[in-house]
């Protein structure tokens, strides 16, 4: 009975073996990850980083570097006409056609003077003073069909645009605002809710002074006498008869201008506007009055 002997032997061996427990169990292959890097025969060689290159050397190169080639971003020659482009004043455009459509849609009230605040309030124009935007550039697209009598204040306008506005009996002024004033004009409510006194508008920088003092551009710092002369000159150049402003029923509206230090129509620097109480507070202190008048 050989088979019986074998069975008994194996059973005896099983009985002598230790029972299965945590002490004699081993992890599944690959379940345990060694944090150490083997050396030599213990998994040395490439350590799983592949053969040569960025994988081994961890030299992930800087953006634009082309491993010794003349990089693309340096391959173009020097272009000096872009010099200082990040500092230049920008004037996001609004065409006369777009302005006409705003007026037709009654998004802009033409019975009161229009400034950049009005345009922003219409919801069809926006600008960002923090991105070097210094106001609106009224462009001449649609100058032929422009037919509104308005008193508008923009930051930049060409000769054609001035002619188009004045032909219809309107008035146009180009005015400079410093970025801080533009923030106020963009969102007056936010400013009034901050409970501060309205500041003064700052004077233009030296490189903009020529534009804003010249009567041809209808600058806000130009001599009014010269502006009226230029109005006549321009009408003769473009061949239209200049409507007489004094006979207009809206004469007072058309003649309304802001002071060079003023930011909002009808509100002087130094005033505090409270929207909750619907009141305006004016400074009485002599020193404050002098400061805001300077």
């Amino acid at each position: 009975m050989g088979s019986r002997q074998i069975t008994e032997k194996s059973l005896a061996m099983l009985r002598s073996l230790p029972r299965i427990s945590l002490a004699n169990l081993r992890d599944n292959p690959g379940a345990k990850k060694n944090t150490k890097r083997g050396r030599g025969q213990h998994g040395g060689d490439k350590h799983g980083a592949g053969n040569k290159g960025s994988g081994q050397r961890m030299n992930y190169m800087r953006l634009g570097y082309e491993t010794g080639n003349n990089p693309f971003y340096l391959r173009m020659p020097h272009e000096p006409y872009y010099k200082g482009h990040h500092l230049r004043r920008q004037y996001p455009p609004l065409s006369l056609h777009a302005l006409q459509s705003l007026i037709d849609k009654n998004c802009v009230d033409v019975t009161i003077p229009i400034d950049i605040s009005t345009l922003v309030k219409s919801g069809f124009y926006n600008f960002f003073p923090d991105q070097k935007h210094f106001g609106v550039n009224l462009t001449d697209e649609g100058a032929d069909i422009f037919a509104a009598k308005i008193n508008i204040e923009v930051q930049w306008a060409s000769e054609q645009v001035i002619a188009a506005v004045e032909r219809n009996g309107g008035v146009i002024t180009t005015a400079y605002y410093d970025p801080h004033s533009l923030f106020l004009l963009k969102d007056p409510k936010k400013f009034f809710q901050s409970g501060q006194a309205i500041p003064r508008r700052m004077i233009p920088p030296p490189d903009a002074i020529e534009y804003y003092t010249s009567a041809e551009n209808r600058g806000y710092l130009a001599d009014p006498e010269k502006i009226s002369q230029e109005r006549l000159k321009l009408s003769q150049k473009y061949g239209y008869t200049l409507p007489n402003l004094e006979n207009e029923p809206q004469y007072t509206m058309l003649c309304e201008r802001k002071d060079p230090r003023q930011i909002f129509y009808g509100l002087e620097p130094g005033w505090v506007v409270n929207l909750k109480d619907e009141c305006i507070l004016k400074p009485k202190d002599k020193e404050l009055q002098d400061f805001y008048a300077s």
Partner: peptide
């Protein structure tokens, strides 16, 4: 200033703080 600007005179803030002080000027 913000409290005055937002809640008006009911905020209990004296509105004279809305203007800059002498040192500020």
């Amino acid at each position: 200033r913000k409290m005055y600007g937002k809640y008006g005179i009911t905020s209990g803030v004296n509105p004279s703080i809305c203007w800059p002080s002498k040192t500020d000027i």
